[in-house]
């Protein structure tokens, strides 16, 4: 426990409530934003079966986001529920990973992005299942079963594309090269992460990268793709610094609640 947070209210796991709330926003926002991206494929996927597959994954991610954001809203204690957090926060208040908000591009960009993210979620949720925060651990355990399938689906496609035609291989490798600079953020802890790791709530993020890389390398080997060399990694999404694409994504996602506050089905 650091000096800065020692006076803040603690939760049952012994970490500052503010820190836990921040973590839940990060987890929930990454799932929510990626779900919205996947939803953009509905009606545009190469086959109706893929339309369903992508939207099924999106709905799983929305379910995760609901659980994380609801919990965050309760901890925050300002009366914001999952909907208020999803639909009434601006770009700078969003805490998602930069990888999650990257544009869909072509099918290979979407599936490479998904595979990088799914493999990360699988490592993260497996570790979070042992979190000192019981409620977080419970959500992670449920999400892990979903993520296990997501990995099968997205890694299967990365192999098909990478080991497919010359054109699909070229596009998959290009997608991997372009997205690589957004993968470092997943394993880069800030002060909040560090305090939560110390409190046993969050696994050490850098330590997750070993398992992630091992799983990814196995996929890339089957896919005949080359893992890019590590260079500059973009960070800042978790602190609210996003690319310009997120604003447009939120404008579409939040339009109804902004135009007709409180509208419901």
């Amino acid at each position: 426990m650091t000096e800065a947070s020692s006076s803040a209210p603690l939760n049952s796991a012994g970490v500052a409530t503010d820190d836990l709330c921040e973590l839940l926003l990060r987890l929930g926002d990454s799932s929510l934003i990626l779900a919205q991206r996947l939803g953009e494929w509905i009606g545009h996927a190469p086959a109706v079966e893929e339309d369903l597959a992508l939207s099924n994954t999106a709905l799983d991610l929305v379910g995760q986001a609901r659980a994380f954001l609801t919990y965050a809203g309760e901890l925050e204690g300002r009366g914001r529920d999952e909907d208020a957090l999803a639909f009434l926060r601006d770009t700078r208040e969003y805490r998602n990973l930069l990888l999650a908000e990257q544009p869909n591009g072509d099918f290979s960009v979407t599936l490479v992005r998904q595979c990088l993210f799914d493999l990360f979620q699988r490592e993260l949720f497996a570790a979070l299942s042992q979190s000192a925060d019981q409620r977080l651990a419970q959500v992670a355990r449920k999400a892990l079963t979903e993520t296990t399938y997501h990995v099968q689906y997205s890694s299967g496609w990365v192999v098909r594309l990478g080991d497919g035609t010359d054109e699909s291989h070229r596009r998959a490798q290009q997608a991997l090269d372009d997205l690589w600079r957004f993968t470092g953020e997943m394993f880069t802890p800030d002060a909040v992460d560090a305090r939560l790791t110390e409190g046993g709530v969050l696994p050490s993020l850098p330590s997750l990268r070993l398992g992630w890389l091992a799983a990814l390398d196995a996929v890339l080997r089957d896919a005949m793709l080359t893992r890019p060399t590590d260079g500059f990694f973009h960070t800042g999404g978790k602190q609210g610094h996003h690319g310009e694409g997120l604003g447009r994504l939120l404008a579409e996602m939040q339009f109804l609640q902004r135009a007709y506050p409180g509208a419901s089905w």
């Binding site: 079966e49 369903l52 597959a53 099924n56 399938y149 299967g156 098909r160």
Partner: peptide, 20 residues
């Protein structure tokens, strides 16, 4: 029924199409 490139993809499509 559904379309797929191979049996493995067919199983995934079946899961996503018929067991939602």
């Amino acid at each position: 029924s559904l379309h797929a490139a191979d049996p493995q993809m067919a199983l995934q499509h079946a899961r996503d199409t018929y067991t939602r």
